[in-house]
Computed example of a mutant assay.
Amino acid sequence: MIKIEDPELLSYIPDYRINLISPYSISDISLDQFHTSLREVILFIKYSKDKNRLRKIVTADPHFLSVDRKAGQVIKILTGSDFEIREEEEKIDMCKALEDLKEEGRQEGWQEGRQDGIRKLILKILAKNQFSYEEIADMTEMSVEEIMEIDRSAAGQQ
């Protein structure tokens, strides 16, 4: 990785062989030769960008029903997945972990959509100039400060 010409300096640098694994370049058939949880880790990483394919592989492969805790932690860290691993779990059901992630995303999307809808409603009410900030806050169960912030941000965008 580095080029050092000085033989004296080279004597202090160990020459270790390092094998790099690229999950994207390993065929699924070659992965079947692995008989440890490394197989599931590599498969998950390989298809983590293709959610449909990942879901198919995880649900079809019985090995994903019981992944070692450490393998689950590696998957979580390397793929940036945000599924929960409870302290007492020795094995992780990756099918359930994916479903939990999907549900969490669904809930977040619903909440964001709801907040956006309330914001649009507040903007429509404000545009009519018929209600005070206090009345709008009472109707929407938001604080007067939040209503004022929505009004300021809308005025700033115009």
Results as ranks from 00 to 15, higher is better:
Ile2Cys: 03
Ile2Ser: 11
Glu5Gly: 02
Pro7Glu: 00
Leu9Arg: 08
Leu10Asn: 15
Tyr12Ala: 07
Ile18Trp: 08
Ile18Ala: 07
Asn19Thr: 13
Ile21Phe: 11
Tyr24Phe: 13
Ser25Cys: 09
Ile26Met: 15
Ser27Met: 07
Ser30His: 08
Leu31Met: 14
Leu31Lys: 04
Gln33Ala: 10
Phe34Arg: 01
Phe34Pro: 10
His35Glu: 08
Thr36Trp: 00
Ser37Cys: 12
Ser37Trp: 02
Leu38Gln: 13
Leu38Glu: 14
Leu38Ile: 14
Arg39Met: 06
Glu40Trp: 00
Glu40Gly: 03
Glu40Asn: 14
Glu40Lys: 13
Ile42Asp: 12
Ile42Ala: 04
Lys46Pro: 05
Lys49His: 04
Lys49Leu: 05
Asp50Tyr: 02
Val58Ser: 03
Thr59Met: 03
Asp61Ser: 12
His63Ser: 12
Phe64Arg: 10
Leu65Ala: 09
Ser66Val: 03
Gly72Asn: 08
Gln73Arg: 13
Val74Gly: 02
Lys76Ala: 05
Asp82Ile: 10
Arg86Tyr: 13
Glu88Val: 12
Glu88Gly: 15
Lys91Trp: 08
Lys91Asp: 11
Asp93Met: 09
Asp93Leu: 08
Lys96Thr: 12
Lys96Leu: 15
Glu99Ala: 13
Glu99Val: 08
Glu99Trp: 01
Leu101Cys: 13
Lys102His: 12
Gly105Lys: 03
Arg106Trp: 04
Gln111Pro: 06
Glu112Ala: 09
Glu112Met: 01
Gln115Thr: 07
Asp116Arg: 14
Gly117Gln: 05
Ile118Gly: 00
Lys120Cys: 04
Lys120Ile: 04
Leu123Tyr: 05
Lys124Ser: 12
Ile125Ala: 11
Leu126Thr: 04
Ala127Ser: 14
Asn129Trp: 06
Phe131Met: 10
Ser132Leu: 00
Tyr133Met: 06
Glu135Ser: 11
Met139Gln: 05
Thr140Leu: 11
Thr140His: 03
Thr140Tyr: 01
Val144Lys: 13
Glu145His: 08
Met148Tyr: 10
Ile150Thr: 06
Ser153Gln: 15
Ala154Asp: 11
Ala155Pro: 00
Gln157Phe: 13
